[in-house]
């Protein structure tokens, strides 16, 4: 039994796949709060099917790109759960999952783009051929710099219609499709490493107050 989950968007999605097809799927109810919702969601999924943790045989996780905090919850959960249960863990680019769903559900029939919300008025974006094979990306871009008349899958198209007028297919990734992608090896299987695509903001912990005497430009005493 394959357990799949993705935390690269505001909602947590988790699913079970028995080797034939998806047998259970759940999505969190509250946006954000990945850390609070993921573990109970996994527990509920197992309970739905009357399964125990020992029934799991592999773990699949969306590696983003996506907002960092949620992304890390998914990745550290996948890695640690795999350690505890001695299971293999497979990472998949979250944009690839949207692409495969769009192809398999007939939403696209030509080259297309997947764009998700990267916040800060930017999108995470990758382009695909008609079979859902990734051609370019993923990258983080301003919508205007990536504007296209091609079909665009994902929330990015809904957020920036002026740049992406041709919105099609699913808005957010589903763990059910993530599970199918892994079970059928429809996309590149990656190590469970986060696709951050951005460097960390080098802002020192704001909780620690700064005072006049701290101006580093003043230089140290000799």
């Amino acid at each position: 039994m394959l357990l799949a989950f993705d935390t690269a968007t505001p909602l947590v999605t988790a699913a079970l796949h028995d080797g034939e097809d998806v047998v259970a799927e759940r999505t969190s109810t509250q946006p954000m709060k990945h850390g609070e919702q993921l573990a109970p969601l996994i527990e509920a999924l197992l309970h739905d099917r009357g399964l125990v943790r020992q029934d799991l045989t592999a773990i699949a996780v969306g590696v983003g790109p996506g907002p960092f905090t949620g992304l890390r919850v998914g990745l550290v959960t996948a890695r640690t759960l795999a350690l505890a249960l001695e299971l293999p863990v497979y990472g998949v680019c979250t944009l690839d999952v949207l692409a495969i769903e769009a192809v398999d559900t007939g939403a696209v029939h030509e080259d297309f783009v997947v764009a998700t919300d990267a916040r800060r008025k930017e999108v995470y974006l990758a382009s695909y051929d008609a079979d859902g094979a990734r051609l370019v990306g993923p990258d983080v871009l301003k919508p205007a710099d990536a504007a296209t008349a091609a079909p665009v899958v994902g929330e990015g198209a809904l957020l920036y219609p002026e740049a992406f007028p041709h919105a099609v297919g699913p808005a957010r990734p589903s763990a059910g499709w993530l599970a199918r992608v892994v079970a059928e090896e429809r996309a590149e299987l990656l190590d469970p490493e986060p696709l951050y695509l951005r460097r960390p903001d080098a802002v020192v912990n704001a909780a620690r107050k700064q005072v006049l005497a701290d101006d580093p430009s003043r230089g140290p005493a000799r």
């Binding site: 573990a39 943790r53 905090t69 890390r72 919850v73 550290v76 959960t77 640690t80 759960l81």
Partner: peptide
């Protein structure tokens, strides 16, 4: 502690609790 830092530890601990029962 730092919210984002705490979260990594808490999520990992939950995965251990869940995985080990």
């Amino acid at each position: 502690g730092l919210a984002g830092a705490l979260l990594v530890g808490v999520a990992s601990a939950k995965a251990l609790a869940l995985g080990l029962g």
